[in-house]
Every structure is written in structure tokens, then in C-alpha cells.
Simulated assay, not measured.
Amino acid sequence: MYLENVVIDAQDPQRLGRFWESLLGCTTLTDDPGGSGDAGSFETRLTVADGPTLDLCFEQVDEAPTPDPRLHLEVFGGAPAEQARVVERALALGARHLDLGQRDVPWVVLADPEGNPFCVMEDRAEYAVSGPLSSLPLESADVERDLRFWSELSGWTPTDSAMPGALRHPSGRGPLLELCPERRAKVAGAKNRVHLDLRLEVGEELDDAFGRLVELGGRERAHDWGELPWRVCLDPSGNEVCLLPARPAASEVRG
């Protein structure tokens, strides 16, 4: 099993997806505007040299963003001059400054074109190998418990960070998944605007993977989205995570 997708709900997937694609230097995978009652989607791939690939998937929803997400994106800025250039580029692409009461901090808080908060981070040693996406901070009710949950299911390994717990791809490169003490408990039934997907490897069974998720403190998420080929779940702190079935082996694709 491995971490494959960062999934972001969007009212306009094309607009929001192209913003993030341009800001992070990603490559388009899917550009489906939908139509005739079908929801649109946009997928783009972030590739870190000698490290992981992560797909950013923008799926159409009707709901507007909330101002206080449990998972958000942090962009690598660097030294002050470079950080300022990244901020200016983001603003030119459609971002805006956002005041969340952060006061005097070394990072810059912005909102993307749909109002989702994100940060352009300052220079930190742990970001030197992150690539353009420095980190993914995820709120946790129990950092040590959730660190084990995400490490065992994703294969990412613990590493040093300013946050109480952090994981990185086993290559030692790519963005950090940072576990941050939650500011308030997850509201029952509420859905995170941003969530992560785990993809099974060839030979792994979905029921077995779900059983391991439950052993580690996760559970299934009730939903009314119809029959799906994947399992919609919650981590031990109530954050959404989807278990995706393994992709067909190359021999099966060739038929």
C-alpha cells in the first residue's frame, strides 16, 4: 500500500487544478469538465526527483470551502527573496492574502482561488529535500497513535520536523506528512475538504487492507455516495482516507 493521491474538493476543478498545477510545476493527467449532470474532475501529477510521485485530484462538489481545514497544503518558499517570488507567482495565478490571526510568523498565509488556506513556507532544513510542496499538515487527536497508523499503511517513515510527528517517503525525499495536535475535535459527519488516498499494491486485497486499518484504529465512513470500487474510511482522529484497489497488473492490461 502506498500514498497515491491528495484529493481536494473543488467547486470548479479545472480552475483550481490549473492553479495548483502551475504553482507546483505538475503535469496534467486528467482534464474532465463533466457536463450533462456529471461532475467534473482534474488530476495533475507532482514528481519529486529521486523521490515519490503524488497525484493532486480535484473533484467537483457544490459546497464552499471552510476557513479552518484539518489538512492543507504548504508550499516551499525558501529564503526571503525566493519566498517573496513564490508568493508573487501565487498571487498572479489567482491567490490572495489571508488573515487568520497568524500575526508575525515567518511563513505567508494565502488563499487559493476558491478560498482554501495554504502557506508559503520559510527556509527550514527539513524542507531542503521536499520539492515544491513542502508539507501536508494533518490534525491529529493523538500524534503518536496516528503516526503509527499512517506510517504502517503508507510505508512513509518517521523523520524530524518542527511538528510533534512527521513522515516522509522512504526515499528520504518529497513533502512531509506532519501530524499536528488538533485545535478541536473533528465534527461528526463533516467531511474534510482535503483528504489522502492509499493505493493497494498488486496482490493486496481490499478487505485485508481494511482489516489492518481497523486494527490500527481506523474505521469505515458512512456515506450516501452510492456503490464505489474503493473503501471510504476514517483515520483514528476522524480524517477521511480512501483505500483504492490495486491497479491491474501489466499482463492483465495487455489482455
Rank of each mutant, 00 (worst) to 15 (best):
Glu88Tyr: 04
Ser171Cys: 09
Gly25Ala: 01
Asp31His: 13
Pro175Trp: 03
Phe149Pro: 08
Lys191Ala: 09
Ser135Arg: 05
Gln14His: 15
Gly40Glu: 12
Leu46Ala: 04
Leu71Thr: 11
Arg247Lys: 13
Met121Phe: 06
Gln102Leu: 10
Gly101Ser: 01
Leu100Cys: 08
Glu152Cys: 09
Gly172Asp: 08
Leu206Glu: 12
Asp31Thr: 11
Asp50His: 14
Leu54Trp: 01
Glu220His: 14
Pro132Met: 00
Val120Met: 00
Val214Asn: 10
Ala95Ile: 00
Ala39Trp: 06
Arg183Lys: 07
Leu138Val: 10
Glu139His: 08
Gln11Val: 04
Leu29Asp: 07
Leu138Tyr: 03
Val187Met: 08
Pro245Trp: 07
Ser36Asn: 15
Leu196Phe: 12
Ala39Pro: 11
Val105Glu: 14
Ala162Ile: 14
Pro113Leu: 00
Val129Ser: 10
Arg231Thr: 12
His72Leu: 09
Gly165Ile: 08
Ala64Leu: 15
His195Val: 09
Arg103Tyr: 13
Arg124Lys: 12
Gly155Phe: 10
Ala190Gly: 01
His169Gly: 03
Val214Ala: 14
Asn116Leu: 06
Arg184Ser: 08
Ala185Trp: 00
Pro175Asp: 06
Glu215Ser: 07
Pro229Cys: 01
Leu16Asn: 06
Ser130Leu: 00
Leu29Gln: 09
Asp160Ile: 10
Ala90Thr: 04
Arg184Asn: 03
His72Ser: 05
Leu46His: 04
Gln83Asp: 07
Glu205Gly: 15
Val48Phe: 00
Asp235Val: 05
Ala49Asp: 14
Thr27Glu: 13
Glu252Thr: 08
Phe76Thr: 14
Asp235Asn: 02
Ser161Gln: 02
Glu144Lys: 13
Ser237Asn: 05
Asp104Ser: 15
Val187Ser: 11
Arg184Glu: 09
Cys180Tyr: 11
Glu82Ala: 14
His72Pro: 12
Ser135Tyr: 02
Met1Leu: 10
Asn116Lys: 01
Val75Glu: 06
Val48Gly: 05
Gly34Cys: 13
Asp50Gly: 12
Cys233Asn: 02
Ala162Asp: 15
Val6Phe: 06
Thr159Ser: 14
Ile8Asn: 03
Arg247Val: 05
Ala246Tyr: 12
Leu16Val: 05
Pro117Trp: 04
Gly155Tyr: 11
Arg221Phe: 02
Glu43Tyr: 14
Gly17Glu: 00
Cys180Ile: 15
Leu46Tyr: 07
Ser151Met: 01
Asp112Ala: 04
Arg96Pro: 14
Leu198Val: 11
Pro248Lys: 05
Val87Met: 03
Met163Glu: 15
Asp55Tyr: 09
Ser171Glu: 11
Val48Asn: 06
Gly165Ser: 10
Trp107Arg: 00
Glu220Tyr: 12
His97Leu: 07
Arg183Cys: 03
Gln60Asn: 09
Gly131Ala: 05
Val214Lys: 08
Arg124Val: 11
Ser22Glu: 15
Asp160Ser: 14
Glu144Pro: 07
Thr44Arg: 03
Leu136Ala: 03
Ala49His: 11
Val202Ile: 15
Leu216Lys: 04
Val109Gln: 10
His169Phe: 07
Phe210Arg: 09
Lys191Gly: 09
